[in-house]
């Protein structure tokens, strides 16, 4: 991947994130673009982003693959692993040796190894004292992520957080809460829509998600809206 392409990607992503401060946007679409950009820009095999729900539990909102074992690995990291650690402390947790870490990380470690991951970086989505979730980057053998890359990833996470929380934190924190919960609820709808497409087209969940994304893109509609219409049976494709 050439240096220029990489920089262009980063600039595009920052510009997209900055747009959220000006225009209306869909949280799910924005964050999906963010994790996709991480994988296309940095040497990481997979990326996923988790947000905290009403009950304070972290849930996977978007990931670069819908493969259930990857989602499960991230969910385990959110129970006992770098993800929850990063969320709790509000700091970047980089695990370059999976043997490191407390004993209760075992389920996460096992799942990560089965997936061929050798290192993981959890970056908090934090604005001052408020942490709303964490961005997770997974590396496989041979992937290298330098300090500058990590700083860039962190900056992406920071701007995304500001985009999500801007003004709202200042006005009323429960409005921000509500918006995060709405984003997580749209994830529920997206999963249901994937199920509908997987059944009607006879395809895997992964392919079903591609169908959903392609339809949203070609019609320039937010992913969550298309999913809602499928679930409400107001559209069929």
């Amino acid at each position: 991947m050439s240096q220029l392409t990489r920089e262009e990607r980063l600039v595009d992503m920052f510009a997209t994130l900055a747009d959220t401060l000006i225009d209306d946007y869909d949280v799910v679409d924005l964050l999906q673009t963010l994790v996709d950009t991480c994988v296309s820009t940095f040497e990481v095999a997979a990326a996923g982003l988790l947000l905290s729900d009403d009950g304070g539990d972290l849930e996977v909102l978007v990931s670069t693959s819908e493969e259930s074992r990857l989602v499960e690995t991230m969910q385990l990291s959110a129970e006992a692993g770098p993800c929850i650690e990063s969320f709790r402390t509000g700091t970047v947790i980089s695990v370059t040796d999976l043997d490191q870490g407390p004993p209760d990380w075992k389920p996460f470690r096992t799942a990560a190894r089965e997936h061929g991951f050798t290192a993981v970086h959890a970056i908090p989505l934090r604005l001052r004292e408020t942490t709303i979730g964490a961005l997770n980057l997974f590396q496989q053998q041979g992937d290298s992520l330098g300090d500058r890359d990590l700083r860039a990833a962190r900056a992406l996470a920071d701007v995304a957080t500001i985009g999500i929380l801007h003004e709202r934190t200042l006005r009323a924190s429960d409005v921000a809460r509500e918006q995060l919960q709405n984003a997580l609820n749209s994830r529920v709808t997206i999963e249901q829509a994937k199920g509908i497409l997987a059944y009607t087209h006879g395809v895997s969940m992964e392919e079903a998600f591609s169908l959903l994304r392609n339809h949203a893109r070609s019609n320039q509609l937010p992913l969550a809206l298309v999913a809602r219409q499928l679930v409400d049976r107001t559209i069929i494709f």
Binding site: S68, E79, T189, E191, K194, G195, Y199
Partner: peptide, 22 residues
């Protein structure tokens, strides 16, 4: 850890099979 997603996906299957609400 992944149960909720699987249940939501299966809910989609049933929506498609029976044309009922989520």
């Amino acid at each position: 850890p992944n149960s909720r997603r699987i249940i939501h996906q299966a809910t989609g299957f049933v929506i498609a099979q029976l044309a009922i609400s989520a």
